[in-house]
Every structure is written in C-alpha cells, then in structure tokens.
C-alpha cells in the first residue's frame, strides 16, 4: 500500500458526532486525484497500537490541493474514531494511503440515483462533485434521524436533485417511489447501515431491478468481539486478538506481513488460507463466496473473527 505523510490543515465540527478533517501535503505538493467513492486508509498510532481505518474521501476528486474526510465518533467502536476526535490536532502529520475506489460510479449510466443513510452520505459528497463536472443526470436521497444529526446537510449543495428525508420530521424515505419509475440505464448506489442496503435490495427485487445495477457500500469497520487466539502454521507462533482489535491488526502488531488494501472486507487482498479450524469463523466480509465461507478454509483477517478451540492460519 503506497502512502504519504500529510498535515492536518483543518478540523471542523459538522454535528455533535461528526467532524471533518482536511489533509494537505506539508510541502504544498498536489496529491493524486481520485474518482468519486474512493477511500483512503488513515493510520493512527494510538498508545502503542497502530490502527488503520478506511474513510471515504468527501472533497472534490478533481482538486489535488487536499483530501477531506468526515469521521463519526463511535464510542462503542474500537477506538479509531475516538482517536480522530480526541487526539488529532491541527498541524499533526498523519500517514494516509493512496486513494482506492471500491464504490465507483458506473459511467455508462444514463442516470445515477444515490441513497444515503446517516454517515453513509460521505462517498456521495465526492461523487456529486464528479457528476456536476461530467454533467450527468442524478438524484440523491439522504435519510437521517434528525436535522441535528444530519452532518451531511452542511456539505450538500442546494440543488433540486438533492432530497433530504428527516424521519423525526415525518419525512421518511419512500424507496418504492424512488425506484418505481426510473428510466432505462439508471444505476442505484446505496451507502449506509446494512438495513438500508437490504431495504433497497428488497425493493429493487420486488420492482424487477437486476442486482447488478444496485451498488452498495456498507460502512464496515471491523466489528469488536470476544478475544481469540490464532496459530501461525509456519512458525507455530500464537497471536492473541483483543476484543477491540481486528485479526489483521493483531497480526501486524506481531509483525506478521499480510497484504491489505481496503481493510473493510471488500477488496479481497488480505485473503488468508486456513490450515486447520476447530470452531467457527465469524465471516464479516463481502468477498468470500458462500461455499468458501462454509468450507472454513479461508478467512479475511481485516474484519472476520473466530470462536472455538483452535484456528491455524497458512502464515
């Protein structure tokens, strides 16, 4: 993974839980451009633990002067977002990976329909700028519980194609109406909680939409869980994975080399063979097929966990 050290050049509170960070090259060099929907991985050295979290870029993909992300504070999470909110200060240098896009627009689409739930608005903020530049037809639907929580409001353009649905105000998102009458060639992109993505998939299926035009990105932070041990087949070494640590993070802490890219169970880069498994792998990824999961011969250490007697990895 190529990465560079960037300086924190702006921190702005967008809502009680969401903060915007801007990163710029310390020497003022231009950063590589990207496509809407891309993310970067931010490294957070936190008291001896190196965390790496992926965040969607929200700034203009055609503007290399800086990268911006919006981070929602998850107090029940593994500590990455808390670190961003409490430890990061203006002027800090942080290591940021090159942009990777696993949620890009299908540029053949005759129309783009974007559906965001909560902090899932972030990838669309960059895509909106890309679509404006390319002058492509779109509509965006943004669902939030309350206006106070809707951090995206401050970042969304005032445009007739942008629809905000605040459930507290009784203005719930009607997926049937959104998907009911779209022209041929429409692609739908959903980002937000798993429930929203499932709802779009169900509504789409009911209305005859093929799965291939319903794109989604789950906000996948590695889920916490009970601690467990893994054994490495090559060295016999045993690595303990803490409750708020991912298997990948535990391996990195033990200085075991594993390739990675998205750290969210989507890209497949960290796929690791399982040598022996007495117990159950908790697969949280979107990469392995159902058969591969059931066979318990592969694991995605970025998000998946284990319960049981022993798990021996081909490492």
């Amino acid at each position: 993974m190529t990465s560079r050290l960037l300086r924190v050049s702006a921190i702005e509170t967008l809502s009680p839980l969401v903060t915007r960070f801007r990163f710029e090259d310390p020497e003022g060099a231009l950063l590589p451009l990207f496509s809407g929907g891309a993310h970067v991985v931010v490294e957070m050295p936190d008291a001896g633990v190196l965390r790496r979290n992926a965040y969607s870029l929200i700034s203009d993909p055609m503007d290399g002067s800086g990268y911006e992300i919006a981070v929602r504070r998850e107090d029940g999470g593994r500590g990455g977002s808390r670190f961003m909110h409490t430890k990061v200060a203006l002027g800090d240098l942080m290591r940021i990976s090159a942009p990777v896009n696993l949620f890009s627009l299908d540029l053949r689409a005759k129309k783009h329909v974007m559906i965001a739930g909560g902090i899932g608005i972030t990838p669309f903020l960059a895509q909106l700028k890309q679509l404006a530049r390319l002058q492509m037809p779109f509509e965006l639907h943004y669902a939030a519980r309350s206006r106070a929580e809707a951090a995206g409001l401050a970042l969304l353009p005032a445009s007739p194609q942008v629809h905000v649905h605040v459930s507290e105000e009784g203005n719930r998102m009607d997926l049937g109406a959104i998907l009911g009458s779209q022209p041929l060639g429409t692609h739908v992109y959903t980002c937000g909680p798993e429930g929203l993505i499932e709802a779009v998939a169900e509504t789409g299926a009911r209305l005859g939409w093929p799965k291939t035009v319903l794109h989604s990105e789950v906000f996948m932070a590695p889920p916490p869980g009970a601690p467990f041990d893994v054994t490495l087949a090559k060295t016999g070494k045993v690595v303990t994975v803490g409750p708020h640590q991912s298997l990948l993070e535990a391996l990195e802490q033990a200085e075991v080399e594993v390739e990675w890219m998205c750290r969210g169970g989507a890209c497949g880069r960290c796929e690791t063979g399982v040598h022996a498994c007495h117990g159950t792998i908790e697969h949280h990824d979107h990469w392995l097929s159902d058969d591969e999961r059931a066979s318990q011969t592969k694991i995605m250490p970025c998000v998946s966990r284990f319960t049981g007697e022993t798990l021996v990895l081909d490492l």
Partner: peptide, 11 residues
C-alpha cells in the same frame, strides 16, 4: 483479473 482489479494508482 483478481490482481488487476486491485491495481493501485501510482503502482
């Protein structure tokens, strides 16, 4: 194909 889908910018 698996390799190419993960090809990174600048690499």
């Amino acid at each position: 194909l698996k390799f190419l889908l993960n090809l990174q910018q600048g690499a």
